[in-house]
Each structure stands twice: as structure tokens, then as C-alpha cells.
């Protein structure tokens, strides 16, 4: 199990009901992690519509999770 901190923006924050949370996960990559969260929170956005950042740097979805990572999921937003 890997323990990570998650931050959500926009629709993801709304659908998760929180702007951040700490989770322990068996997912190995960011892509797997998002799939797991999508099932748990019912996220409507597909992974292709999102950017992901780890420890304040944008990242590849195939990156492996490390203990203590802070992961941020960011959709583009439209409001003005």
C-alpha cells in the first residue's frame, strides 16, 4: 500500500466532496490511481481530459506512485 495526498480541482472537487484527501492505495501508476478514484467518487471526466501533477510538477500518467506523493488532478474549466 502506498500512502498519498490527493488534491482535487473544479468538477473533481465537487464530485469528491473535498478539495483534498489522504488515501492508501494499491494502484501502482497515476492512471491506475485515477481509475480507482473514478470508481469510488463517480468522476465523470475521462483521464484524457485531465492533467495530473505530482509534487508540484506535471507528470506522465504512467509514473509510478511513491510513498508520500502529493497528486493533483486538474481539468480545464470553462467559466468566465
Amino acid at each position: 500500500m502506498t500512502r498519498v495526498t490527493l488534491q482535487y480541482y473544479a468538477q473533481l472537487r465537487e464530485q469528491a466532496g473535498a478539495s483534498s484527501e489522504q488515501v492508501s492505495t494499491t494502484a501502482s501508476t497515476l492512471r491506475d490511481l485515477y481509475a480507482e478514484l473514478q470508481a469510488r467518487h463517480g468522476f465523470s471526466l475521462p483521464v484524457e481530459a485531465l492533467k495530473v501533477a505530482v509534487n508540484k510538477q506535471f507528470s506522465d500518467w504512467n509514473r509510478l506512485l511513491a510513498e508520500g506523493d502529493t497528486v493533483v488532478f486538474i481539468p480545464p474549466v470553462a467559466g468566465g
Binding site: A10, P75, A78
Partner: peptide, 20 residues
Amino acid sequence: CLWPEPPAPALAGSCVESGV
């Protein structure tokens, strides 16, 4: 470079639908 294509309009949210 960030998001190559916009998501479908229904998924992106607007001030009308999402509130602001």
C-alpha cells in the same frame, strides 16, 4: 500543450450549470 483537446462541453462546466 496542457490539454490537447477540450473535453465535451457537458463535462467542462460553465457558470450557468455549475454556479460561481
